Simulated scan of single mutants.
Amino acid sequence: MSVSVEELLFTIRYRCDTESHLAIRDQTRCSTCNQPCLTFCPAEVYTFRDGAMHVAYENCIECGTCRIACPHQNIEWRYPRGGFGVAYKIG
């Protein structure tokens, strides 16, 4: 039996904090680079619009891909405060 990524993402439960655990260190860097975070984030947390990178931290699945894959090290990533964040139902 094969399970799609979308089906697995649906099983994740998230208790959203009012404080973001993700931040863009330098917005000007995002406006001048090729913005790889728009393609490598499996939860599509990052969007570029109106000349700025926007972070939908509420969608983050805490995989850590962005902190490793950003070639500019322009994403500040930390775990959400205690009691907030992802609760995996499977795996």
Rank of each mutant, 00 (worst) to 15 (best):
E44W: 01
H21G: 06
E6S: 13
V5F: 13
P42D: 13
Y79T: 05
P80T: 09
C70V: 06
I68T: 13
Y88A: 12
H54M: 04
R49D: 15
N74E: 09
A69Y: 03
D17E: 12
A43K: 09
G51K: 06
Q35F: 00
S2N: 10
G83K: 08
C41D: 10
P80N: 10
Y14Q: 12
R29P: 00
P80S: 10
C60H: 12
R29Y: 00
C37E: 15
S20D: 07
C33H: 08
R67P: 00
P42R: 09
T18L: 02
C60F: 08
A52Y: 06
C41S: 08
C16V: 13
T47G: 07
T47C: 06
I68V: 14
A56S: 14
N74K: 05
C63M: 05
I61G: 04
F84V: 03
C30L: 03
F48P: 03
V3W: 11
A23K: 14
C30A: 04
Q73W: 07
P71R: 03
Y79V: 01
T11K: 15
I12G: 03
F10H: 11
C60A: 12
M1C: 13
N59W: 02
C37H: 12
A52H: 12
T11P: 01
G91H: 07
G83Q: 08
L38C: 02
D50T: 01
A87T: 15
N59T: 04
S4V: 03
C70M: 05
I68Q: 08
G91L: 08
Q27M: 01
P80W: 10
L38W: 05
A69I: 00
N59E: 13
N34L: 05
C66L: 10
E44F: 06
Y88M: 12
Q35I: 08
Q27E: 06
E76F: 13
I68H: 13
T11Y: 13
Q27I: 02
I12R: 07
R25W: 01
L8F: 14
C66G: 14
G82K: 15
T18V: 03
M53W: 08
G91I: 03
E58N: 05
K89N: 04
N59V: 00
P71W: 03
S4H: 09
N59G: 00
C16I: 14
